[in-house]
Computed example of a mutant assay.
Amino acid sequence: MQIVLFDGFDPLDVVAPFEVLAEGAAVAGQPDEVRLVAVGGPREVVGGTRGLALRAAAALDPDAPGYVVVPGASGRSDEIPALLAGVARSPVIPAVRAALANPGVTVATVCGGSLILAMAGLLDGRPAVTNAQGMDALAATGARPVRARVVDDGDLVTAAGVTSGLDLGLHLVEREYGPPVALAVEEMFQYERRGIAWR
């Protein structure tokens, strides 16, 4: 499981699914499965919230089977559209395009992550969700907006606003390891999944 970091990423879009996926992997006996990655390899990556930085431990590998999670961006609200558009033109996109073409990979997004993919033309005709403020923009790209907390379209799973990263993580844990593991993680985190998971 790879979670992609890029300059300006939203920290909660990364940390919430990271914690849930890491705990799910540990409960399932696969403790080393979740990694923070970046195009170009290991480096410190500065997020968009007050300069909070995380370290990518490896390069994004679109050929590695499993999940690739793409977060949204953060910053001042008037800066977000330009940040998302910048990532949609960045080296992240060819790697995510390759991951989507790999039958062994499921690409997942949190919040504006789906807008990044949609702006790059990767979600044409596909059902997806993003944060409430971005649903019209998602539709304008050719994606099919679905008002749900999580939208599961097989090899593409998208999640709504920033806190839905928890729900995305639990959904992926259930897909990968089964309901008992997902329930164990819910109980450990004292968090119950919210909203609709649309399939």
Rank of each mutant, 00 (worst) to 15 (best):
A57M: 10
A197R: 12
P42N: 04
D167S: 09
T141M: 09
A128D: 02
P94C: 13
S90R: 11
A120N: 05
G41C: 00
V162G: 08
R55K: 04
G41E: 03
A58P: 11
D10K: 02
G161F: 08
D152I: 06
V39K: 02
L83Y: 03
L52V: 08
T163L: 14
F18V: 00
F189G: 02
G165L: 06
L123Q: 06
R97W: 10
P65D: 15
F18C: 05
L21F: 12
R175H: 14
V4I: 07
E33P: 12
L117H: 06
D167F: 10
G169P: 04
V27E: 13
G112I: 07
M119R: 08
A99H: 08
G72I: 04
G51P: 09
A108V: 14
A101K: 14
E192T: 15
V4G: 04
V37M: 00
R147D: 13
V110E: 09
V70C: 12
G104A: 15
R147T: 07
A59L: 01
I3D: 02
Q2N: 10
F18L: 03
T49V: 09
A120H: 00
I116C: 07
G134F: 05
G195I: 04
Q30F: 03
L21Q: 01
A120W: 02
G134P: 04
V107F: 11
A140T: 02
F6A: 12
L100I: 11
A108S: 15
A101D: 13
D78K: 01
G104H: 14
A58T: 12
V92A: 00
P179I: 15
G75A: 02
L21C: 06
L5N: 03
G112N: 10
M119G: 10
M1C: 13
Y67C: 10
L12A: 04
A57D: 06
A128Y: 06
D153H: 11
Q133K: 13
V107E: 08
V14N: 00
V96I: 11
L5F: 05
D63L: 15
G40T: 10
V92D: 02
A159P: 10
A73Q: 11
V69T: 13
A28I: 15
S77R: 06
L115F: 12
G51Y: 01
E19I: 04
T109V: 11
P71G: 08
A57Q: 10
S164M: 05
Y177H: 15
A82H: 01
M188P: 09
L36N: 00
P180N: 13
